[in-house]
Amino acid sequence: MAEFVTLDLLEGDAERGVAVLRIARPPMNLFTVQVVREVAAAAVAVAADSAIAAVVVYGDERVFSAGDDLAELAAMSQGQAEAMAADVQDALGCLGRIPQPTVAAISGYALGSGLELALGADRRIIGDNVKLGFPQINSGLIPLAGIRRLALLVGPGAAKDLVYTGRFVEHEEAAALGLVDEVVPPDDVYAAALRWARRFVGGPARALAAAKAVFEAGPHGLDRARTEWADLFGTEDRRIGTESYLADGPGSASFVGR
């Protein structure tokens, strides 16, 4: 049983629903190695559960995550860091490997490794009181997992500015940079994320997973797209989707997720 992460499936349609992956280490949801591993384990469980159509990643109404637990990092030796770096880096990228659509619902702060985790979500929704940033440089460190994704999102120049300075970004700049996708009032963050996630209940799960796999493939996306596209011709959803489109037009399919 996880100590700091919960995973709950909300009621959706008869077969599939939205899961909420919640980080629960109050008061600031600081990330330790244990927290990161628990998030990654929850992501594995999501990926294996066909009842989950989409995922909301959330902290609470006050904070998503204020970043790394510096007390743990201060006590860590170089040997310990070397031994766990690959494991922690892989865990922080876990949202990108979930085949279902994912949305990070961000309140208060998303800093350091907390923001690195959120960068792996397919969508980021923040309140207009949120502060985002990568302050690791001020502790003599760098982001372990987020630099590549950050550069892809905002461009290398803006990414270098954020990482080198460690400065905080507020909602207007975050939206202008493309660091986040939607800004809402603070009290609406969770509800807005649920609304987006519920769009995929009853959707073509296999096609959504295929599209996500192509996005994640990066420079190998063209090759991956050929494979994923061809594989979809062996799915029930492809048959249902094409036949219903021909008979009744777009938006008429009742997908089964197979």
Score class of each variant (00 low, 15 high):
1 M>N: 15
1 M>V: 02
3 E>W: 00
9 L>S: 14
15 E>R: 00
16 R>L: 01
17 G>N: 11
19 A>I: 10
20 V>E: 07
20 V>N: 12
23 I>D: 12
24 A>P: 07
24 A>T: 14
24 A>N: 10
26 P>E: 14
27 P>C: 07
29 N>Q: 02
32 T>Q: 01
34 Q>E: 15
34 Q>G: 03
36 V>S: 12
41 A>M: 14
42 A>P: 08
43 A>H: 01
44 V>Q: 05
46 V>I: 13
48 A>I: 05
51 A>V: 02
52 I>N: 01
54 A>D: 00
58 Y>S: 06
58 Y>A: 09
59 G>L: 08
59 G>S: 00
64 F>Y: 08
65 S>G: 01
67 G>V: 00
67 G>L: 10
70 L>C: 12
73 L>W: 13
75 A>Y: 11
76 M>K: 09
82 E>S: 04
83 A>F: 06
85 A>S: 09
86 A>K: 02
88 V>F: 10
90 D>A: 12
91 A>Q: 08
92 L>Q: 13
93 G>A: 14
95 L>Y: 08
96 G>N: 04
96 G>M: 08
97 R>C: 05
98 I>L: 15
100 Q>F: 05
105 A>W: 06
106 I>M: 14
108 G>P: 06
108 G>N: 04
109 Y>K: 01
110 A>W: 07
113 S>R: 08
116 E>M: 05
116 E>F: 03
117 L>W: 05
118 A>W: 07
119 L>R: 01
120 G>Q: 10
124 R>A: 15
124 R>D: 09
126 I>H: 13
126 I>F: 05
129 N>L: 06
130 V>H: 15
133 G>R: 12
134 F>A: 11
135 P>Y: 15
135 P>D: 03
136 Q>N: 13
141 L>D: 09
142 I>S: 09
143 P>L: 09
144 L>F: 11
150 L>V: 05
150 L>S: 14
151 A>Y: 05
151 A>F: 07
155 G>W: 12
158 A>G: 10
158 A>Y: 12
163 V>D: 03
166 G>E: 09
169 V>M: 05
172 E>N: 11
175 A>C: 07
176 A>Y: 04
180 V>C: 04
180 V>G: 14
181 D>R: 00
183 V>G: 04
184 V>L: 13
185 P>I: 08
189 V>M: 06
192 A>W: 07
192 A>T: 15
193 A>C: 02
200 F>C: 08
202 G>D: 06
204 P>Q: 08
204 P>E: 09
204 P>S: 11
206 R>Q: 14
207 A>S: 11
207 A>K: 01
208 L>G: 10
213 A>N: 03
213 A>M: 00
215 F>A: 13
217 A>W: 08
220 H>Q: 15
228 E>M: 13
235 T>S: 15
236 E>P: 02
239 R>N: 00
242 T>G: 08
247 A>L: 10
249 G>V: 14
249 G>Y: 13
250 P>D: 06
251 G>F: 10
253 A>K: 03
255 F>P: 10
